[in-house]
Write a protein that binds this DNA or RNA. Structure first.
Lengths: 138, 138
DNA sequence: TTAAGTGCAAATTATTTGCAGTAAG
DNA sequence: CTTACTGCAAATAATTTGCACTTAA
């Protein structure tokens, strides 16, 4: 239940009906190429692309992260007013956020059981539930 | 347990060791003057002050919200990469966030029971836990 | 061939900061 | 008096957008 279910980057894009352009494939490779889940920011992904064969502009990184999120391939996590984080694991799961280094990581979800989650008010449904556990270095 | 425990704005500031300046008193009045908890953004508080007797500049509203938060009088809630929200209720409690109107409100906390919250990793302690339930209008 | 995607630079938005003036202790 | 606070305008930081160019279908 922790594995990414797609055979390759093109398949990942196709599963969301997105055109496999050179840039998108390059970013997809950096995001899910090794089958591991990861958390990126526009800046961190941009830097990763700078160190790779296929260069992608910062504006395109921003646009692509947005497109991927809207297509359901990524999940945007808001932890910090400034930067936006994107998670390749799109399921509801809790996160640890290191306040000093501003690093985001998965928190062990097995333990977490949210009992009696408040029901959505009249005329609304729950879109998603974000649980962010902020950590302070001791 | 839902009431604000201070007699007046000056007392609220004093409880955090903050100097009761005219502007701070005015903002404190808008924030906790009626004993109700509320959620504000810099912009919304600025507008409220514009409609009140005591005018406060936007920069001072920003600085004051920051100072109040650092002093523990307010709790900053990050729901939306763009804007920052501040809650006069500084305890750990869940929030509803309306995605369309970008409105933040308290969620009924009685029901919510987070069982088996992941323990903080070695060398860290939990600073706070944010639970944001995002709502979509149906 | 043609609509969608990309890249640059300029625009936007929320927030912070420098600094001269003002007020609290 | 003296140091902290305020307000303005300018600076910053993350992100978006306009538009000419490129590319996938």
């Amino acid at each position: 239940m922790d594995r990414i279910d797609h055979k390759n980057e093109a398949g990942w894009l196709a599963s969301a009906g997105l055109r496999p352009t050179r840039q998108r494939l390059a970013l997809a490779q950096l995001l899910v190429g090794d089958g591991q889940h990861r958390h990126v920011t526009a800046e961190s992904l941009y830097e990763a692309s700078r160190d790779s064969a296929e260069r992608v502009s910062l504006a395109t990184v921003y646009n692509t992260l947005r497109v991927f999120s809207e297509a359901g391939l990524l999940r945007e996590i808001t932890v910090n007013g400034a930067r936006s984080y994107f998670d390749t694991n799109v399921s509801n799961h809790p996160h640890f956020f290191w306040e000093d280094s501003e690093e985001l990581m998965d928190a062990p979800a097995e333990d977490l059981k949210i009992a009696g989650l408040p029901k959505a008010p009249e005329g609304a449904e729950i879109s998603k539930v974000d649980v962010v556990i902020r950590l302070r270095r001791t």
